[in-house]
């Protein structure tokens, strides 16, 4: 593999990792509040189809992005309502969101199936930094969403560790009864973070259609990266900065088949290379659980459990 291929692959890995990072941040915020959101894949699809339609109608990719965020947040409010107010099984509710979201996205996307999007995100190089050798091409000749992702990830990390609300959020995820006793509004915190998390997942889906895939391909547009994002949260021990690093790592795995093909390795069929990121995720999850206990990994203690004040 020569140097140009390597640099281009790394640049592509950063771009491919961006929707993963955004979606993982969405899942992470929700899980920090104690609500497991398995619906990420469905939310991303809803965000993606809305972004396509809005960007196509307005001619502006940023309008598409905004629409994707709003649609993702609005759609996720279903999950917030079911898991917080209706005390539903969060696992089943998340799955329902995936199925329902896939249904909505393919229903609305039927007329645009196979159509490429004209209003794609343009490349915006950062003046000065883009001229750096290697790094300039890999990190600083990307688009605004890539840079924006760094900003929101850093802000989220600071929010979780350095602010009062962030502390309150963590207490809601760890011990909602205690949080409730000190006057934190558990239900409101959960609603807010599940829905905002949905906005990030919607942004991830929007980015997929605005910058990654060449055309709308129904459920194949996101092709399971929402699930990889959920696995990333475990991989990142529920920490935003680690989620970003993990997202780029998995972004590289998602791009590996193209890199290997570019390097002239054709002995392995493309279908088997395409399995790689999924298999890698499974192996990573197994290694993590074999070597780390749940508490050392840092999972919020109340994850998945509805909070009911007058019930144990």
């Amino acid at each position: 593999m020569n140097e140009t291929v390597l640099v281009l692959t790394l640049a592509a890995a950063v771009s491919a990792g961006t929707p993963l990072a955004l979606a993982a941040l969405g899942a992470l915020l929700s899980e920090r509040a104690g609500v497991l959101n398995l619906g990420i894949e469905g939310i991303m699809l809803v965000g993606a189809v809305t972004a396509f339609l809005a960007a196509d109608a307005s001619g502006s990719p940023l309008v598409g992005l905004a629409a994707g965020v709003l649609a993702g947040a609005a759609f996720t409010s279903i999950h917030a309502f079911l898991s917080v107010t209706m005390r539903a099984n969060q696992i089943v509710s998340g799955l329902a969101l995936v199925i329902f979201g896939t249904g909505i996205a393919t229903f609305l996307g039927q007329s645009i199936e196979g159509r490429p999007l004209a209003a794609r995100l343009p490349r915006t190089s950062i003046v000065g930094l883009a001229d750096l050798p290697v790094l300039g091409r890999v990190l600083f000749s990307q688009d605004v969403v890539v840079y924006g992702t760094w900003v929101v990830i850093v802000l989220a990390a600071l929010y979780l560790t350095r602010t009062r609300t962030g502390l309150a959020l963590r207490s809601v995820g760890e011990s909602p009864a205690t949080a409730d006793a000190v006057g934190i509004r558990v239900a409101a915190m959960r609603y807010a973070h599940v829905i905002i998390g949905g906005g990030f997942a919607g942004a991830g889906g929007a980015y997929v259609i605005l910058a990654r895939v060449p055309a709308w391909a129904q459920a194949g547009t996101t092709n399971g990266i929402g699930w990889i994002a959920i696995a990333l949260v475990v991989f990142a021990s529920w920490r935003p900065l680690r989620a970003l690093a993990g997202a780029y790592l998995f972004g590289a795995a998602l791009r590996a088949n193209f890199a290997l093909q570019a390097a002239g390795i054709t002995a392995i069929p493309a279908e088997f290379l395409a399995m790689l990121p999924y298999v890698l995720t499974i192996v990573v999850l197994m290694v993590l659980s074999a070597t780390d206990t749940r508490s050392r990994l840092g999972a919020p203690a109340a994850l998945g459990a509805p909070f009911v004040r007058d019930e144990r």
Partner: peptide, 25 residues
């Protein structure tokens, strides 16, 4: 009619049933 009408309807049925679980329990 988009084929996805089936997926959308089944997903919606499950969501409503999940909400209904509260009244079962």
């Amino acid at each position: 009619v988009p084929v996805a009408i089936s997926t959308m309807l089944t997903g919606a049925i499950l969501l409503f049933a999940l909400a209904g679980e509260l009244f079962v329990r």
